[in-house]
Amino acid sequence: MSITHDYHVHSNYSDGEFLWKMLRGAEAAGLDAVGFADHCNVADRESMRLEKCQLGFTLDETYERRRAAIESFRDSFDLTVYDAVEMDYDPRDEARIEAFLDEADFDYAVASVHHVGDRNVQSKGPFRDLSEAERRVVVDDYFDALVALAESELFEVMAHPDLVERNPLLRGFATDDHYERVAIALAGSRTVPELNAGRVLDDYGEFHPAPAFLEAILDHDVSVTVGSDSHRPEEVEKRVPVLKERFAELDVEPVRIV
C-alpha cells in the first residue's frame, strides 16, 4: 500500500516545528505531498478567546504570512505542499467558520471537535469532578457535534473523530450507536474522516477511529483519508510506515482530497 500524501501535519504557526523542518521530515518519510493543517479557532466566546491567547493559536491572523512562507519553500523541496487549516468546530460557530473559510480560501479544511461546551476533551482537569453519568453526557454531546460537523458541509476532512478516547476519564463511553450515527452522517456528506496516527505509537496506542468505529464507517462505504497529525519531523517519519501497514491490513486505498 503506497502512502504518498499526508494531509494533516502542524507547523510553528500552531504547535508544531518550523515549516522547513516538517518538510524535511516529509521528504525523509518518502511522501510526495504534505498538507499543513495548523490549529485555528474563530469562536468569539470569552473562554475560547482566552485559550487562543494562552496557546498562541492565531492562524486566523497569520495565515497569509504562513502562505507566503509555504510559497517560499516550494522550490526547495521535492514535494507538493498544501496550505490547509485545522478548525475547531462547535455548532455555535458555524457562521463565523464559514465566513473565515470563504475569506481565507485554503486548499482544504480539516475540522476537529476539541471542546464540549467550555471543556477541552483532551484535558483531564475539567472532568475529574464529574460523575460517570455526567461524563457520559459529555461523550453524547461530543458525538452530537461530530454529526453536526459532517452535516455542516463546511469541511473536507474530519480529524481524529474519537478524540475523547485519548482521555482516560472519557474513554470507554462511546457506543456502537454513536459510531453508527456519525457514519451515517458522513455517508451523506462531502466530509471524509481521516485515519489518524497521532497517538498510535504513544500511550493510547490506537489509531483514530478505533477499530469498531472504523468498521462502522467502512460499512457505510465512506472513504478514509490519511493524517499523521505530526508536530515534529521525526513523527512523520515514524507514523507514515504504520499508516501504510494499517491501510494494507484494511485493504482500503486512502482517498485523495486535493
Rank of each mutant, 00 (worst) to 15 (best):
77 F>E: 02
8 H>G: 01
210 A>H: 00
210 A>K: 11
85 V>R: 01
127 F>Y: 04
71 E>K: 10
15 D>T: 09
184 I>D: 15
151 E>Q: 14
114 H>T: 08
109 A>M: 00
5 H>Y: 08
152 S>L: 08
44 D>F: 09
1 M>W: 00
73 F>M: 06
161 P>T: 10
146 L>H: 02
170 L>N: 06
180 E>F: 09
189 S>Q: 08
173 F>G: 02
101 L>F: 10
2 S>P: 12
203 D>H: 09
186 L>G: 03
251 D>F: 09
47 S>F: 10
161 P>R: 07
30 G>M: 05
118 D>R: 03
119 R>N: 03
81 V>K: 01
113 V>Q: 03
162 D>Q: 04
248 A>V: 01
195 L>R: 02
222 V>Y: 01
76 S>C: 13
257 I>M: 01
159 A>F: 08
111 A>T: 05
148 A>Q: 08
72 S>Q: 05
228 S>E: 12
244 K>A: 15
108 Y>D: 01
21 K>Q: 15
98 E>Q: 14
238 K>L: 14
151 E>H: 11
151 E>C: 09
198 G>C: 10
153 E>M: 06
3 I>M: 00
71 E>P: 03
8 H>R: 07
59 L>A: 10
204 Y>P: 04
122 Q>C: 15
8 H>L: 07
160 H>D: 03
216 A>R: 12
143 F>A: 05
43 A>L: 10
78 D>I: 05
4 T>D: 12
236 V>L: 15
194 E>R: 05
5 H>M: 00
175 T>V: 11
249 E>V: 09
205 G>E: 09
121 V>E: 02
234 E>I: 01
27 E>C: 08
131 S>I: 08
196 N>D: 07
158 M>N: 02
54 Q>G: 00
188 G>L: 13
92 R>W: 02
67 R>G: 08
188 G>Y: 14
97 I>R: 04
244 K>G: 10
40 C>V: 12
183 A>K: 07
250 L>W: 12
123 S>C: 14
44 D>V: 09
199 R>W: 12
71 E>W: 11
84 A>T: 05
27 E>T: 11
61 E>S: 15
130 L>T: 03
103 E>T: 10
34 V>S: 06
235 E>G: 11
53 C>K: 15
148 A>E: 13
244 K>V: 12
174 A>V: 04
126 P>N: 01
144 D>S: 11
128 R>L: 12
70 I>C: 01
173 F>I: 06
94 E>Q: 14
100 F>G: 10
41 N>L: 00
89 Y>A: 08
54 Q>Y: 06
60 D>A: 14
19 L>Y: 02
246 R>C: 10
255 V>A: 01
101 L>S: 05
249 E>Q: 14
18 F>C: 11
147 V>A: 09
43 A>R: 07
11 S>Y: 04
50 L>F: 06
93 D>A: 06
33 A>G: 05
87 M>I: 13
32 D>Q: 15
187 A>Y: 07
34 V>R: 03
31 L>R: 04
